[in-house]
Design a protein around this nucleic acid. Sequence first.
DNA 1: GACAAATAGTGTCTCAAGGACAATTATCTA
DNA 2: TAGATAATTGTCCTTGAGACACTATTTGTC
Lengths: 234, 234
Amino acid sequence: MTQENFKSPLLTVDSVLFTIKDNSLKILLLKRKNSPFQNSWALPGGFIDVDKDGSAEDTACRKLTDKTGVTPPYLEQLNTFSSKSRDPRGWSASIAYFALIAHEETNLDVTPRNDESAQWVDVESLMDETANYQPLAFDHQQIFQFALERLKQKALYSMLPVFCLPKEFTLGEYHTLIEIILGKSIQKKTLYRRFEASNMFEETGETLATGARAAMLYRLKEDAELVNFERNLG
Amino acid sequence: MTQENFKSPLLTVDSVLFTIKDNSLKILLLKRKNSPFQNSWALPGGFIDVDKDGSAEDTACRKLTDKTGVTPPYLEQLNTFSSKSRDPRGWSASIAYFALIAHEETNLDVTPRNDESAQWVDVESLMDETANYQPLAFDHQQIFQFALERLKQKALYSMLPVFCLPKEFTLGEYHTLIEIILGKSIQKKTLYRRFEASNMFEETGETLATGARAAMLYRLKEDAELVNFERNLG
DNA sequence: GACAAATAGTGTCTCAAGGACAATTATCTA
DNA sequence: TAGATAATTGTCCTTGAGACACTATTTGTC
């Protein structure tokens, strides 16, 4: 039995790229220019180019770099969504990725698209299926929700969300970020303890003043490895 | 730009099916009858049948049911492995699944294949790349390792491994199972506390004697939901 | 039937890390 | 310089895992 006996499914790659901007969690959405779902908003992604891409991760990376101008500092595979009905063109599968970036590092702030084809969209507004940007193309709403769950879960037991922040950041910014992701208040002390215990960061020596006492700036250490804690935050 | 511009990658589904048998953790392997990797051992899987399968999970399920005679009580998606080089036939992706079953529930004990085309293979022997069954077809060694890591990880914070046990089992069997999966000794007390706290199980009323004092038999409750604990085992 | 062997299951103390929250420190503004 | 504001630290409480010894139940032997 060889693969020639089978009609081949469509295979695509889509990414959920998170950032923190204006005190809210956002993802990157693009307005589709072509059918199907023309003019709907969709996750950045597309078909694998078997000549350009060595793996699906290369495809995800290539598409994101195309849109943002930079390679996101964190990218992991999320899940593959497949069914006979998710794409009107036929049986299809999408390998979904989950990525984090500081919006300041992208070129989306500097050169906003005139045609508004690419937007940072507030996660809150995507929870309401009747709001702007809805409905998303394909099963992208489901993919987005899956990614959001993963982000929330990982925020409970790792420092992963720091990749939403710029290269240099303060503990206060991290604290705010975690509270926004989890949607509830977290003790500063707890985060500070983990921050210290992770041993992933170093002081830059600089401080950042946001109106009151200046806060120490930190950056990822060169050789930092993402640490998983033994317990979840409550 | 439509998908017609692209050569389409091959898309397959493979599963790592774990069980506990003869006091060791094993996975199901099949001997390949066809090229490529003819006569190598491989994970159960194959091409998606776009007519039969509504989703990739259906494919995984169908292939496993074909081989074992039953649907595994636990099946989740693991990861999709893709590259231009993992299959000599060309650019390919395999959606890998991770499944658990009690070997007693399958028909593999009752009707062992005469041609030895399907075997429960000891996980230990797969860690040694020079042993029997090696090397596995494609990147199945990597997929297997990924699955094993996932199983170990989940054993630390959930009761997931119970799906390797028969429908009725004792706490002692569960204890042994966990120690085998994690490869180290775990306090009975700790597991018993979690077992109780999970609220997933009920006494059958029967007991099972294994040579000394008889142990209470438990089964999954009808409406049991898999619980995640807040802390990992050490 | 008494008792030894073996495994099942419990009691209880210790310890590590998160939660609460108050106290202290540094910086800005008026 | 005082007051406001936010950063950072100190300390006690609580929860659940780890250690480990103790009790309970069944089987087999004499």
